[in-house]
Nucleic acid binder design. Structure first.
Lengths: 177, 177
DNA sequence: TTGACATATATCGTGATGATATATATCCTG
DNA sequence: CAGGATATATATCATCACGATATATGTCAA
């Protein structure tokens, strides 16, 4: 998912500390990925050593010094290059598919319970994302708004997959392997 | 995605070597995840030390010895437990969303080219998966067939997302940030 | 006043990935 | 028949993402 590119994308807008980047990320990217300090700080170090960003230490009394990162011309170029890089095909990679693959090992009741729990959790995730709408409509550009819409559709599609699974189980002849 | 659970799921069917597991995996799971030896062998070692599998070394002359793994009762229990474990919510995590998020930094022509390339690659992936249909219809149980169908729908949904993006760009007023 | 929350950086263990190394056997093709 | 590709089979390495945790301090409300 290339964390460095995302960080550079945020740093183009404004100079930021690792902490700021984490916040910015959670607010706008949260629905398609997490990002932890264990990834951010090492990435910033690497990017600094590669000349993609520069660091300004702002001394504060008491609190730990802020390390403000600024993107360089090389960083801007690296960012655009990776936006343009050839696409690497992606796979679904969803844990639920793994479970479903082995569903024959569970009883019909367990299968139904698991699929229903999953459906509930997807509905919840969709609701959470939907609740960000006002914020996104205020701040996002048109492409970022498309990301939001695709995120919603993603959950809708998962819900519809789960309904399909539940339908298939409704009139199942038990099929233990 | 819990590699150990997947390996146990295959070992329930029959005893296998790491190499066999890799093959079994690529044939049936390939459309939602990869699995490399760098993950398999360490996992098998861990599972052996935890008593989930036992190892029989089959000496061969010339070729490296086969290490055949057999699932234990504890392994069977661990497998079922993780199928029943509470669901961890998942996020889309798609690299294309990251690109789209920053699309405003590219020219309209570049945006269109990237989205079209992506669409092509999705169509290709769908075709490849569809070509596995006869094999899957012959070997899969009904839940595994549902996995296959969901895989196809996944690519269909991605294609439809991309069409949406292309439509939105067709009549765009350029919106650079 | 005390506990929760925000600011801010950093490191650690765990583990997944992709690449590579090491051997040998078989099978197809020119 | 030689050569090269492919299959069998195990193993390790560097890279790096993640989640948890440690360390400090400031602020604000109950």
């Amino acid at each position: 998912m290339d964390i460095q590119t995302v960080l550079l994308g945020f740093l183009i807008r404004s100079c930021m500390t690792g902490y700021d980047l984490r916040k910015a990320f959670s607010m706008s990217f949260s629905f398609f990925s997490g990002l932890s300090y264990g990834s951010i700080y090492p990435s910033l170090k690497k990017m600094e050593s590669r000349g993609l960003v520069t660091k300004q230490v702002v001394i504060q009394d008491g609190a730990p010094n802020r390390k403000v990162y600024t993107i360089t011309e090389a960083g801007r170029k690296a960012f655009l290059d990776s936006l343009r890089a050839p696409f690497v095909p992606e796979q679904p990679k969803r844990a639920f598919l793994m479970r479903l693959f082995f569903f024959a090992h569970l009883s019909p009741e367990e299968r139904k319970a698991i699929a229903l729990a999953q459906l509930e959790s997807v509905v919840l995730l969709r609701k959470e994302l939907e609740s960000l709408r006002p914020e996104i409509e205020a701040l996002a550009d048109s492409f970022q708004y498309l990301c939001f819409q695709i995120g919603l559709r993603y959950y809708d599609n998962m819900a519809s997959d789960l309904s399909m699974v539940l339908d298939a189980m409704r009139d199942e002849k038990v099929n233990l392997s």
